[in-house]
Nucleic acid binder design. Sequence first.
DNA 1: AACCTGACTTCGG
DNA 2: TCCGAAGCCAGGT
Length: 111
Amino acid sequence: MKNPEGPSSFYERVKQIIKQIPYGKVATYGQIAFYAGSSRAARQVAWVLHSSSERDNLPWHRVINGKGKISLKPSLGYELQRSLLEAEGIVFDEAAQVDLNRYGFRMHKPV
DNA sequence: AACCTGACTTCGG
DNA sequence: TCCGAAGCCAGGT
């Protein structure tokens, strides 16, 4: 990981946005990318999380894919993320999906 | 410098 | 409605 250039970099904006996801809510990769200024950089959002979620204490578990499902694979973090979300009151249906209409995060102020 | 890879998204069959 | 292929941006090799 390189040094983040500054607060205006995509990298920094993504982190700021993720930090703003409130307890009990979730956001999708594409949505975060959109708020960060690059609606097509969903994969980079995932990359930011993977590279510095631990270091910067980001609520990485509140980020899921556009289908409302967890992207991690079983035994590679899936169980952990799901339990963290359930601990916040988020419910998964039989298809292991969450209701984005209900739990989806909506930003109030642009970053 | 070129090619591969990824915690994604979207479109077409 | 479900599945596969293509598109995208960046870092790693």
